[in-house]
């Protein structure tokens, strides 16, 4: 589903190489986790895949279902089925959460040649999905993420994911800033979306999120490369011994 080959990326503003040859394949129905120390390039990978400005791909490719992601605008990637749950969801004052969701859902449907959802159908759908994430009517009415707590922001990300039904979900440090209960709620939301047609790329510092969202494959990223891949046990190894040992191992 997602195929990344030899991806090299540098910053646009300064001559700094962040990704130095990433190879990664995420199959439909699988959950892949990427772990790594600060500054290893995990978040950059998520931004480059989702089409954020400020990065230059110097080498390599990234494809989603055979389509060249790197040639597409951010909105086209979303319509093609890519979704990034932000580490820091952005506050948009003045735009109602519901308006935003509906605009996004219908823009994607339009881009795919589907009919737009009617107001009634949309409302029904959003209420159903919001309920499972314990998002109340008030949160839906308020401006996007404005005044939301950390947990509310992350649940709101998962709600968007549930509404947009992407093929590939990237979760960037979704556990950051969450207490145990909030993390459980978010993880349940993600697990409910696990499906054989859908792939996940879960980026995290810590193993604890992976107790709740159990991955099929764990990758360790260090200095812009994936240096080691393995089963869920690899996450435990990191938890017990830190990244230093792996870094030493592959050096």
């Amino acid at each position: 589903m997602l195929e990344i080959k030899n991806l090299h990326v540098k910053l646009e503003e300064e001559d700094k190489q962040i990704l130095k040859g990433v190879d990664l394949t995420v199959e439909a129905g699988k959950v892949h986790a990427i772990m790594g120390p600060n500054g290893s390039g995990k978040s950059t990978l998520s931004y480059v895949l989702s089409g954020r400005d400020g990065y230059v791909v110097t080498e390599g490719s990234a494809q989603l279902d055979g389509h060249d992601l790197l040639e597409m605008e951010a909105e086209e990637r979303a319509a093609a089925g890519l979704f990034l749950a932000f580490q820091y969801p952005v506050e948009i004052p003045g735009v109602g959460n519901m308006t935003f969701l509906r605009t996004a859902v219908n823009a994607q449907r339009k881009a795919r040649g589907q009919e737009e959802l009617s107001a009634a159908d949309f409302l029904k759908l959003v209420r159903e999905k919001a309920k499972a994430l314990q998002i109340d009517a008030d949160m839906l009415k308020r401006p996007v993420n404005v005044g939301f707590s950390g947990g509310e922001k992350k649940r709101n990300e998962i709600l968007q994911m549930a509404m947009l039904e992407p093929k590939l979900c990237i979760l960037d440090e979704t556990d950051s800033g969450l207490d145990v209960d909030a993390m459980k709620l978010v993880a349940d939301g993600v697990n409910a979306l696990r499906d054989e047609g859908r792939g996940f790329l879960v980026i995290t510092h810590y193993q604890r999120l992976l107790d709740h969202i159990v991955p099929d494959v764990v990758h360790i990223m260090v200095d812009g490369r994936i240096v080691k891949s393995g089963g869920p046990d690899l996450a435990l190894e990191v938890e017990n011994h830190g990244y230093a040992r792996i870094q030493a191992e592959v050096a």
Partner: peptide, 11 residues
């Protein structure tokens, strides 16, 4: 903000 909206498929 613009990227956030676009990343959700909003042109």
């Amino acid at each position: 903000g613009l990227f956030y909206l676009r990343s959700r498929g909003v042109p």
